[in-house]
Design a protein around this nucleic acid. Structure first.
Lengths: 153, 153
DNA sequence: GCCATTTAGTTGAACGCTCAACAAAACCGC
DNA sequence: GCGGTTTTGTTGAGCGTTCAACTAAATGGC
């Protein structure tokens, strides 16, 4: 049988609800800004960023999914949209006939270049401007710990 | 004209990406667990929680939207689903003829009672078990600061 | 070499969210 | 109390995500 539930004490409750509210509000704000100013959701922006940083601006679908924290299905649908927008195109993978490469087009790079300053400014305004340098450091350590914990088990 | 973009330095970049990855992974994990074990997304769980904590287990739609961090439209759609599941019902508001009250049904309360232990265990395992007490405290302060910053401006 | 297993990627349906438009009632100044 | 404004809540379309089912190609054992 399952062990007895380890309920949250009052401090944990407060922390969890605050974290939930903060991350939700931050993500929604940035997503809305990006949609308004650049016509793309944040998930698509991140796909373009990862492609722009890759050698020859191309990545295998699986690697892109991993890099952008996305499921394969999600990425497949997303790339279909990005392809329709002319920002990405697909290429056959030369070494694996199952594979597909997502390639950032010049138009996609231009869209990213246009979107980036506004988005970065949003991240700064809504996140970093609110926190002290010490808090930024704490947040990085906490986040790294959580990622390790979540992807390691 | 706009000011020059204040780009992120390397530490900020790392912090932002880690935070993004951590909160996304955490939310997706908890959402998936809740969907699998209780047949509801996390947003719906939170609506049921807020209702269960309200006097007489009922709230005005607006107040419920505010409490659960949801837009009115989103809440309206969500309550329609929850009503179809028999977990919530709507009542006319006696003091404002525009108003609607969302009321948690016995079935809804039972569904919440069934879902809570597993979900709380998930929050503990994926969040609190990974962090030191000091980090939990830091995370609460950071989150409170961000919420204030985001909703105050 | 052959068959079973694993991996890569896609597809379609169901679902939840966003946005803009809308209807109805309450509020407010006069 | 009348008329404009604000507030409350809903609606439908469009979009992005999830999940499960699927195809096709690579891999590994024998």
């Amino acid at each position: 049988m399952g062990a007895m539930t380890r309920w949250l004490d009052e401090d944990e409750q407060r922390t969890w609800r605050a974290f939930l509210a903060a991350s939700r509000a931050l993500m929604e704000t940035l997503d809305r800004e990006l949609q308004r100013d650049a016509g793309m959701p944040h998930a698509y922006y991140e796909i373009l960023v990862r492609l722009s940083e890759a050698p020859r601006r191309r990545l295998r679908m699986s690697d892109l999914a991993e890099a952008s924290g996305s499921s394969r299905s999600r990425l497949s649908h997303a790339v279909a949209r990005l392809e329709a927008a002319g920002w990405v195109r697909r290429e056959e993978c030369p070494t694996d006939r199952r594979g597909q490469l997502a390639v950032l087009t010049d138009g996609g790079f231009a869209a990213l270049t246009a979107a980036a300053p506004g988005h970065v400014e949003g991240v700064r305004r809504h996140l970093f401007d609110a926190l002290s340098p010490a808090q930024v450091d704490q947040l990085r350590r906490i986040s790294d710990t959580l990622v390790d914990h979540l992807t390691g088990s």
